[in-house]
């Protein structure tokens, strides 16, 4: 039997489709007996949907470094 902590980690992996078959099975069994984790799993899945919906953009670390350099030159 896995702990809630482990279940949460597997749940996070599934958000990125990186959980193995065995891990998914372990998670399923855990969800059958745990009362707390199903809420977390549901909310986590919604967070994934929200992140997709928001079309988040971010600057790469390289871009940020360049920005910092340019900004530092102006100090």
């Amino acid at each position: 039997m896995i702990s809630c902590e482990e279940a949460a980690i597997i749940c996070n992996k599934t958000q990125y489709r990186e959980a193995s078959f065995i891990e998914k099975l372990k998670l399923r069994f855990h969800l059958l007996v745990c009362k707390i984790c199903p809420v977390y799993v549901k909310k986590n899945a919604q967070l994934t949907v929200l992140c997709q919906k928001a079309h988040l953009k971010s600057l790469s670390e390289k871009d940020k470094r360049r920005m910092k350099e340019k900004l530092n030159n102006k100090f």
């Binding site: 980690i9 996070n12 549901k42 929200l50």
Partner: peptide
């Protein structure tokens, strides 16, 4: 990495306004 992702996601769930979640 997964521990950090886990902490970040848990924090985000707490930080994001409840209105965004439909449970």
């Amino acid at each position: 990495l997964w521990v950090m992702v886990h902490r970040a996601r848990t924090a985000l769930m707490g930080c994001l306004n409840e209105n965004w979640f439909k449970i």
